[in-house]
Nucleic acid binder design. Sequence first.
RNA 1: CGAGUAAACCAGGCAGUCGCGGGCAAUGGUCGAAAGACCCUGUCCGAGGAAAGUCCGGGCUUCACAGAGCAAGGAUAACGGCUAACGGCCGCCGGGGGCGACCCUAGGGAUAGUGCAACAGAAAAUAACCACCGUACUCUGUACGGAACGGGUGGAAAGGCGAGGUAAAAGCUCACCAAGAUGGGGGAGACCCCAUCGUUGUGUAAACCCUAUCCGAAGCAACACCGUGGAGGGACAUACAGCUUGCUCGGCUGUCCCGCGGAGGUGGCACCGAGCCGUCGCGGCAACGCACGGCCAAGAUAGAUGACUGCCGAAUACAGAACCCGGCUUACAGAUUUACUCAUAGC
Length: 111
Amino acid sequence: MKITPITGNRDFQRVYRRGKSCVSPGLVTYVLKNKNNNLRIGITTSKKVGKAVKRNRSRRLIRAAFSHLDVDMNQNYDIIFVARTKTCFLKSYEVERYMREHLRSLGIMKT
RNA sequence: CGAGUAAACCAGGCAGUCGCGGGCAAUGGUCGAAAGACCCUGUCCGAGGAAAGUCCGGGCUUCACAGAGCAAGGAUAACGGCUAACGGCCGCCGGGGGCGACCCUAGGGAUAGUGCAACAGAAAAUAACCACCGUACUCUGUACGGAACGGGUGGAAAGGCGAGGUAAAAGCUCACCAAGAUGGGGGAGACCCCAUCGUUGUGUAAACCCUAUCCGAAGCAACACCGUGGAGGGACAUACAGCUUGCUCGGCUGUCCCGCGGAGGUGGCACCGAGCCGUCGCGGCAACGCACGGCCAAGAUAGAUGACUGCCGAAUACAGAACCCGGCUUACAGAUUUACUCAUAGC
């Protein structure tokens, strides 16, 4: 599964401002419709999460969790996942559980 | 066996399932006129000792000067060496600490000059408060003089300490010690040793300052290049196409050229280099140099090493390359090895 990344600060700002969001202790998710005919993914790990090692681990966990979920990549949505301070201490199936709940309630995943 | 000192080294491993970045190779597939692009397959490689802090020194790039000196500002500070260079490293000297192995040292100049030294204290640099001694007197004291031994204050009190000496004292004299000057000797040098001279005003230079040496500035978001689009200028009398009313003139847009800022892309950039590793090799106490042999081992660009499971006593230390090297500093669970020191007990 090839992930199309979101690049550019403008796209991120648009999703933050106008997208729908969902919050858990280990993960925050933003979703907004785009015009690209495919799913785009962005991951944010701010300095609040920690230094480089913790931020890298958070990003990898989120990417691994997403690839375990079987998401239809042909929907026209932008999704942004934001890591939180707790994220890098979690196991990947915990992040996966939060992510599944978020994507279901935001209407990306059906089942 | 215990306590300790100094170095070196490692920084979880293995198996399975799923997954990521790059190089190379070849086949097949899709698209394309082609160049090529994408997918698939195989194989190899894929973070650190500090990758960190960005504190020094370089390479590289652009700009400035393309000669020399002076001033300003900054950095360094015993001495000898090593190095491309350094504020680094090694050795050594002085000082300090430790029984010792060993460790620490911002370690030039206070005799170039100007300052400062709060409070306390009589006095912080032309020293006399108490106590001491002498003389005079109006004699339980006062005045004048002597005197830095004692007291008290202070971070520091006029080289230290003892003896002689004296009215009491004082380098006044003497022995030893500290500092200084002069002379001699040793050493590559810092410095050390010896002799003589009574020559002796404390601290502060992390106060200004003086001396010696060194230093142009900015950084890979540097810098070089690319095509598309953008606004601008020019060439087009003409010609071609379109629009402006059917035609003419005129106007606008495009076609051609120029340089400009600039979202984006490519190079820089993954390296034969001050390269890395090794040697009962040679020189050197050592840092290091030489010789020989071997190796070429990350290169992303929203940024690749991960997820899950099991086993191994335990393993969740600090922590992630971003142009590249040499250092320094700081963070750090634990494991191993080597050399050395000390004490106690036992044999």
